[in-house]
Amino acid sequence: MKHPARWIALAVAVVALAFVAVLATQVSDDPQREDNESVLLNHPAPEFSVRTLDGTTITQADLAGKEVIVNFWNSWCIPCHEELPALKEFYDAHATDPDFVMLGIVRADSQDAIRAYVDAEGVDWVVAFDPGANATLGFATRGQPETFAINSDGTIVGFKAGPSSRNELETMLAAARVPS
């Protein structure tokens, strides 16, 4: 008589083998690869309503027809400091373009701190607060800095989590300028 332990062992062996095989496929995966993936890529930009430093309200409707770079940031985030020179350089290169808009949306920070930072660092582009957090949630941000590019149709065509370089910003803007 054969002992059932043999059959059970065989079954367990098959399951264990399959399990190890699945794990093996995951080993080589690069855990950092999600940096430039957003579920929102190639989707319409979400509805949002933010308030600029001087108190005007900007909604996604106001940006229709423009090529937009949206940068989520705040004053206490060190990677945001790191990307500031690239942002400045990039903004200065395109500031005269009438169809270009760059919007820095503040993620979780106090008014005082932001005003002080903007004055001290000479941030020239539009900086806006997100009191209802509807932009923060609408763009499904997971941290700061995060940068999105929106084309004139209002579609999100570029995304970068973490500090962007000048080149990355240019690439995103170029994507936003491709006529659809």
């Binding site: 065989l10 062996a13 264990a16």
Partner: peptide
């Protein structure tokens, strides 16, 4: 992972081999 596979294979294999005497 390879070590895990060896451990599991040896363990399960031995139990299957000795199954009738257990």
């Amino acid at each position: 992972l390879s070590f895990l596979a060896v451990v599991a294979a040896v363990g399960i294999g031995l139990i299957a081999w000795r199954g009738d005497r257990l």
